[in-house]
């Protein structure tokens, strides 16, 4: 009973951390999807320069650790280029996570677009639709349906990646947990903390499943 009481007393702090974790996950994944859409279209573009640029971007952000990107953006960039100093921790982390997620989402979106039978766009072009119209009216709406499961996956990955923000002193759920662990000198706090993570994951899994079945109905 004593243990339960202790866990309950940590709850307000943990929930405060969870708020940052959730907020960061949602905003960064949204930014990632938007950025990823442009990167994906850029990568499959017939313009060689744009295509190569987008490929290079994706290669860089998928090829280096997120932790290092965060460190680099927050600590290293301001040392080289003082004009690019970001003083808000949340904003800095949001930019790092958004840029990183953009690269991953780009690959998901590219795969979704390319999974649509090329015969469809050929038919659309034969009917006189432009490339833009074909994409906007035909390919993208269908890709979105196929995108829901992988984006849901990306979202849950992001939820846990956000735990890296402790390095820039931003109090997400993991950081709060670790602080309580050391100040209360008990690792017990990991239990309620992991339960909170599971609850968040369960909730968003549920949401994404609902969206998925809703879209399937429309098909």
């Amino acid at each position: 009973m004593d243990v339960l009481q202790k866990m309950l007393s940590w709850l307000p702090q943990l929930l405060d951390g969870a708020r940052i974790t959730i907020l960061m996950t949602i905003t960064a994944t949204c930014a990632g999807v938007i950025l990823g859409t442009f990167l994906a279209l850029g990568k499959i573009s017939r313009n060689v320069v744009i295509s190569k640029l987008c490929s290079a971007y994706i290669f860089f952000f998928r090829g280096t650790p997120l932790l290092m990107q965060l460190y680099f953006l927050y600590y290293a960039v301001p040392m080289f280029l003082p004009a690019l100093t970001i003083n808000s921790r949340f904003l800095a982390a949001f930019i790092a996570y958004g840029l990183n997620s953009g690269a991953y989402c780009a690959e998901l979106i590219r795969a979704a677009i390319q999974s649509i039978d090329p015969g469809q766009s050929e038919a659309a072009r034969a009917l006189g639709l432009t490339y833009g119209q074909t994409m906007r009216l035909l390919i993208i709406p269908q890709s979105i349906r196929r995108l829901v499961p992988p984006v849901g996956n990306e979202f849950i990955m992001m939820l846990k990646d956000v735990s890296l923000v402790s390095i820039i002193s931003l109090g997400d759920l993991t950081k709060v947990t670790r602080s309580i662990n050391s100040s209360a000198a008990t690792p017990l706090v990991y239990i309620p903390s992991m339960i909170i993570y599971l609850i968040i994951t369960a909730f968003f899994t549920f949401v994404f499943n609902r969206v998925e079945s809703h879209m399937a109905k429309k098909e």
């Binding site: 600590y75 402790s166 390095i167 820039i168 002193s169 602080s179």
Partner: peptide
């Protein structure tokens, strides 16, 4: 209070 993992930070 701003706390960091490494003192260098």
């Amino acid at each position: 209070i701003m706390d960091y993992d490494k003192v260098i930070n």
